[in-house]
Structure formats: C-alpha cells, structure tokens
C-alpha cells in the first residue's frame, strides 16, 4: 500500500511543535508520503492553500492531518475557511483530525463534519493512518 500513498501530498497542522515533528518523521520513516508541508498555525496553512483558490488545477491530491485544539484558529475554524475553496480542491482533499481529546463534543462534531474523513488519536499510529488512507481512497 505505501507505494500508492507515496503519491500523496501531506499538509500537517498542529500548534504543538513536538507532535508536528513526530508526525513528519513518522510519515517519512513509514514512507507514507514523500512530500510534507508542516504548519504550526492554522492561519499559515490557510495562507498557503489560498494560492489554489484561483488555480485549482495546480492542486494535487492532498491529505491534511489537522489538530483540533489550537489557539486563534482551531481545527474547526480551519475547516470553516477551507470549505470556501473551489470544489476541485475539496474533492482532492482528505482531512483527518488528529487529537488527544476525549471530549465527546469535539469528537462527535468532528465525525459529523462533511469534510472530515476520520479522526485519529494521538499518539499517531502509522498502521491506523495507513488503514484510514486505504479505507478512504476514492479509487485512486
């Protein structure tokens, strides 16, 4: 499976620099992705994605690992903004929330969100991520 997923771009959004480092390392060691763009702030990730607003054709299939609790713009705030992207971008994106939260409200809100493909618990487990990617692969 990893050979398929290798074509994937990853965007990581997490305000915890240790988790961000860990996620990036894990993705590389497990060869889950070859291109990773990490962001410590949701706003920076949104700025980066902004460029595809007018050029959705340049957007490649992307997986976003998104932390829920972040200062300023949190995971749900990110989703709210990201939702405004062109349909071409949305359809090429899979978003997984990655959280240590046990808060029922957060989790059910995440599950209910139409842009969220799944919720992964921290510490991120590579096997679980690979399984989640397989399950949500839209036939290539």
């Amino acid at each position: 499976m990893p050979q398929d997923s290798q074509k994937l771009f990853f965007i990581l959004v997490d305000d915890n620099d240790i988790d961000l480092f860990f996620h990036e390392k894990l993705l590389r060691i497990k060869k889950i992705a070859d291109h990773i763009t990490p962001f410590l702030r949701a706003a920076d990730a949104l700025d980066y994605l902004e460029r595809f607003q007018d050029h959705p054709e340049e957007y490649r299939e992307t997986v976003i690992l998104l932390d829920i609790q972040m200062p300023q713009i949190d995971g749900f705030g990110f989703l709210e903004e990201f939702e405004k992207m062109p349909e071409e971008v949305l359809s090429k994106t899979r978003i997984f929330l990655v959280s240590s939260s046990l808060d029922h409200g957060d989790l059910s809100r995440g599950h209910a969100h139409h842009l969220v493909s799944g919720i992964l618990k921290k510490p991120l487990n590579a096997d679980e991520l690979i399984k989640a990617l397989e399950n949500t692969a839209a036939g290539g």
């Binding site: 915890n16 240790i18 988790d19 860990f22 996620h23 390392k25 894990l26 060691i29 609790q69 240590s100 939260s101 046990l102 808060d103 921290k122 510490p123 991120l124 487990n125």
Partner: peptide
C-alpha cells in the same frame, strides 16, 4: 486536553 496532550507527545516520541 491539556493534561493528556503532552503525555501523547511523549508516547509519540518514544514510538519514533
């Protein structure tokens, strides 16, 4: 969140 989050970071780094 705040209590668990650093614990999960430690576990992540141990896994790494």
């Amino acid at each position: 969140h705040d209590l668990r989050s650093p614990l999960m970071s430690v576990l992540g780094i141990i896994n790494l």
